[in-house]
Structures are given as structure tokens and as C-alpha cells.
Amino acid sequence: HNLTITQGKLFFHYNPKLCLSEIHKMEEVSGTKGRQERNDIALKTNGDQASCENELLKFSYIRTSFDKILLRWEPYWPPDFRDLLGFMLFYKEAPYQNVTEFDGQDACGSNSWTVVDIDPPLRSNDPKSQNHPGWLMRGLKPWTQYAIFVKTLVTFSDERRTYGAKSDIIYVQTDATNPSVPLDPISVSNSSSQIILKWKPPSDPNGNITHYLVFWERQAEDSELFELDYCLKGLKLPSRTWSPPFESEDSQKHNQSEYEDSAGECCSCPKTDSQILKELEESSFRKTFEDYLHNVVFVPRKTSSGTGAEDPRPSRKRRSLGDVGNVTVAVPTVAAFPNTSSTSVPTSPEEHRPFEKVVNKESLVISGLRHFTGYRIELQACNQDTPEERCSVAAYVSARTMPEAKADDIVGPVTHEIFENNVVHLMWQEPKEPNGLIVLYEVSYRRYGDEELHLCVSRKHFALERGCRLRGLSPGNYSVRIRATSLAGNGSWTEPTYFYVTDYLDVPSNIA
């Protein structure tokens, strides 16, 4: 807008934040220059609390790290170098490059900038070799853009010569660093050979998330399962459950009422301010606690030095998902009996873990797994792929695949051998790939016309006998059925096997 004052003059007093240069501009645009008398524009009460600059400061050096910015700028000295009290560095987070010096300023003089007072450097006698002032900004957020400017702080001049310097606002972004852990990993099994893994992005990506790394490792069953005799009275049979499938998407929606109208769909109840505040506090606490764990609990591995020492970490090797089922080394339970199943799973520490690289999504279907087997899954978020990966501390989750139908069934015939004193040795093959492992066998036998009897055969007993022995049988026709019990439950009964026990007292003698 054009402003013209045809008559009258300007009068400025007691404006401590208004620089004289701005008042002189007002004289020019209003056409009143030359009308004012000496005392109409006070030299001592206008701009006496402001830094009124008329020179431009330029930054000469900028260096960044993930949490620091090192700045240096060209030296500046007023005509009387004693008038320079120091520099004021202003900075704040700036997602967009549209910041002005006066953003967030209120009537009390406060604003949204963080201000650092910096002492002037030592003055050199040689004007050509003056030290460049600077400042190291610490405690910054990774991968965050900051708006920065600097200006001088000078003393009051009796001659009211307006001098000083100020830089333009520059924008500097800190470097990326390792992201925080992925949030809320959930693993479920939808079949006997697959596990579905879902997660949420890290709360602090500290860069642009480029991919996720998912490692999985087959877990050995508890050692007590191999040692305890679950045929003993009072000892509860062990059981394991597989990871249940995901709930429906509708039930997972946030901010939804727990109660549904019987007449149909209901609208979600909005969260109160107290609920939102509580969630923010919980989120802040979780982030602080995660940072504490990362800094205190997890110790970084030592990389190899120039002395030739090897990095103890196993090298990563990509495998196809079809090879995942046989990740671990199978060892027989008892070496003397080769027909026992290889369900003991000690994992070799030198073995390469299978892994998958996930790009542009937060889910993965891990296939080719062994049925009813526990897996430990390790999830890392990465925001750099080359020249070397920059990934987060791992988040861990466990899951067990679903049982395989008929995996616990005894394959092959049940054979028998009759000894003296009416002892019958029953023999059968253990299931080759049971659900988890076989903890015991149930032997059901009966003599024709009598009630059915049951015998429990422990895992250890089966390994020693290759089956079991029935003792003290009365003469007669017998039928026997056997079924295995694994961590997933009972298998199917075998087809009945028949044998006849004679009275050993009636056996004919070869003595003449």
C-alpha cells in the first residue's frame, strides 16, 4: 500500500525493539523526510534493546553428524571492536523451508527459537588472519532439518551509529543413524509349514526405512522333555500350542467401542483428552525405555581390526524358502538304536541362519518350516543398504507352526516275539517326523474274553527296548493296539495285532 503524509511529521519514542533503520525507511515511504526535528525521533529510546544489523554474515563451514552440527561463519568486528559482546545463534526444527525470524513471537518477546549466546573469538592483530567464530550444536535429532541463523550482539553506541551483522536463515539436516526397533511384532501360524509375521514401523526411523531383515531359527525343545518319565503317576503330560491366527481386521481397528449394538453396526467412541494424553505418555515412556535398553543392555560386537582377528559373527547367506525346513542338525536320541526319531534339535552355532529381506511392506510369510516346531524370529529395521547396512537392534518374537495331521501315527506293522515265561516283546517304529517329539506310547492289549488293559511306555523305555515287553501273560489269544502321544496330543491307534500265548508248562520236552 502507498502511504503519503502531505502535512505533519513523524514522532517515535520509547520503541526499544524498533531499529532506527526501520524508522528511516518509514520517513522515505511516507514522504516526511526532512520535516522531523532532532528530538522527534529519539536516538536513545528507539532500538536500544534490539540488534540492528546492516551487514550480512556468511557461514564459512558446515559439518553434520547424526546428532551434531558444527558451524563456522566469517569474522565480524565493528569499528570499535570492544562493542562486540558476542553472537546469538538461533535454531529450531523446520520440516519445511518457510521459516521466518519472527515465527511464534508474542507480545512478551518470546519466540519459538532456541538461542545460544556465543563469546567472540580472540581478536588477531592481523586483519587478514582473524579467527572464524563458530559453535557445535549438540543433542539434535537424527535425520531432522533445522533452520539456523546467527547475528551479532553489540553494545549501545553513544554516537548512535547503527552497526551489526546478521546471516540469512539456512537449512541444515542432520545425518541418518540406526533406527529404533520395529514396533509390535506379531507372529502367527496359518499352516503346519508357515508363519505369518506382521509389525509396525519404528517410532524413530532416523532416516528413510529402506528394508527390513527377518531372521528365523528353529528352537530346540526343553531338555526336561527328553529326561522326564511322563508315565509316572502324578506327572502331567506336557503340551505345546501353536500360535493362533490373526483376529479379523475389524476387531483390530483402534479407537473402536468394545460393545456392539445388537441391531447392527455401531460407531466408534472418540477417545477423551485424558485417554489420548495417557497414550502419549505411555508411548514416550516406551521410547525412553527402549533407548535405555539399547544403550545399557546391548553391547556392540567388536569388529575385526587390522591384526587379522576374525569377526566372530557368522556370515549372512541367503537361502531359498524351500530350504528352511531342514535348518537344524538332527541327532538321534540314543545312538545305539537307529530307529528312534531325530527330534532332539541342538543347533550348531556355526550354522548360517536363513533370512529374508523385506522391502516396502511390514509383513512376511515364512514358508518351508517344520510342522509343530518353535521358531525364534528376529526382526531388524534398516535405513541404508549400501555401502553397508545400517540397521536397528533386533526385536524378537516366537511362534510355533501348526501340527501336521497323521504325523504322530505309527507307520509300519507292530511285530512281536514270544519268549519263555510268557513274555512277549512288542516292537514298532517311532514316527519319523512327529509333531514336536514323542513323549510316550500307549499300549492297549486284551486277552479274548477279558477286559482291555493299558500300559504306558516312556520315551526312554522305548529307546532301550525298541518297544516294550509284556510279562506274566496268561495263555490265550491276544490283540494289541499302540498309539503315540506327542507334544500336540495323541496320534491314531494302530491296526490290531494278534498273537497267541501258550502255557509254557505244557511245552513238550526233548528229553527222552
Rank of each mutant, 00 (worst) to 15 (best):
P205T: 07
N206R: 11
I209V: 08
Y212A: 14
L213T: 15
L213S: 15
V214F: 01
V214N: 01
F215G: 08
W216E: 03
E217S: 11
E217I: 00
E221D: 04
D222G: 05
S223D: 14
E224I: 05
E224W: 10
E224M: 15
F226L: 11
F226H: 05
F226D: 07
D229M: 15
D229T: 11
L232C: 15
K233I: 05
G234I: 15
L235C: 11
L235S: 07
S239E: 12
T241N: 09
T241C: 06
W242K: 08
W242G: 10
S243I: 12
P244Y: 10
S248I: 15
E249H: 13
E249P: 11
D250M: 12
Q252C: 10
Q252M: 08
E258A: 13
D261A: 12
G264C: 04
G264F: 05
E265K: 08
C266W: 05
C266F: 03
C267G: 07
T272G: 12
D273Q: 13
L277Q: 02
L280H: 12
L280F: 14
E281R: 13
E282T: 09
R286K: 03
T288R: 05
D291Y: 13
D291G: 07
Y292G: 03
Y292H: 12
H294V: 11
V296L: 07
V296P: 12
F298P: 04
S305K: 14
S305Q: 12
S305A: 10
G306Q: 08
G306I: 11
G306K: 13
T307F: 08
P312S: 13
P312F: 07
P312H: 08
R313P: 13
S315A: 11
R316Y: 01
K317E: 15
R319N: 07
S320L: 08
G322L: 11
G322F: 02
V324L: 06
V324C: 07
V324F: 03
N326W: 05
N326K: 15
V329P: 14
V329D: 13
A336F: 14
N339V: 12
S341P: 05
T343S: 05
T343L: 10
V345Y: 12
T347R: 02
P349R: 07
E351V: 14
F355Q: 03
K357P: 09
N360P: 07
N360F: 05
K361N: 08
E362Y: 13
S367G: 08
L369P: 00
F372Q: 04
F372G: 05
T373A: 04
I377C: 07
I377L: 11
I377Y: 10
I377M: 09
L379P: 01
Q380M: 14
Q380H: 13
Q380D: 11
A381G: 03
N383E: 01
N383G: 03
Q384W: 06
D385Q: 03
E389N: 15
E389I: 15
R390F: 05
C391N: 02
A395F: 09
Y396W: 05
S398F: 04
T401P: 04
M402Q: 15
K406F: 03
A407K: 07
A407P: 03
G412R: 11
H416M: 10
I418V: 08
F419Q: 10
E420V: 03
V423W: 09
V423K: 07
H425L: 03
H425A: 12
M427K: 13
P434N: 07
P434Y: 03
N435C: 11
N435R: 01
V439F: 07
V439G: 05
V439P: 04
L440R: 05
L440V: 14
Y441A: 00
E442G: 08
V443Q: 00
S444F: 15
S444P: 00
R446H: 05
R447T: 09
E452P: 15
H454P: 06
H454Q: 13
L455Y: 06
C456V: 02
S458H: 08
S458T: 06
K460Q: 09
H461N: 07
H461F: 13
H461Q: 07
F462T: 03
A463I: 10
A463C: 06
E465H: 05
E465C: 13
G467V: 06
C468G: 02
L470I: 15
L470S: 00
R471V: 03
R471T: 08
R471S: 05
G472M: 06
G472D: 11
G472K: 13
L473S: 01
L473A: 03
S474N: 12
S474D: 08
P475S: 06
G476P: 00
N477K: 13
R481S: 04
T485A: 15
T485G: 03
G489V: 10
G489A: 11
S492N: 02
T494D: 00
E495N: 13
T497G: 08
Y498K: 15
Y498D: 11
Y498W: 08
T502V: 10
D503W: 12
L505I: 02
D506I: 09
N510I: 15
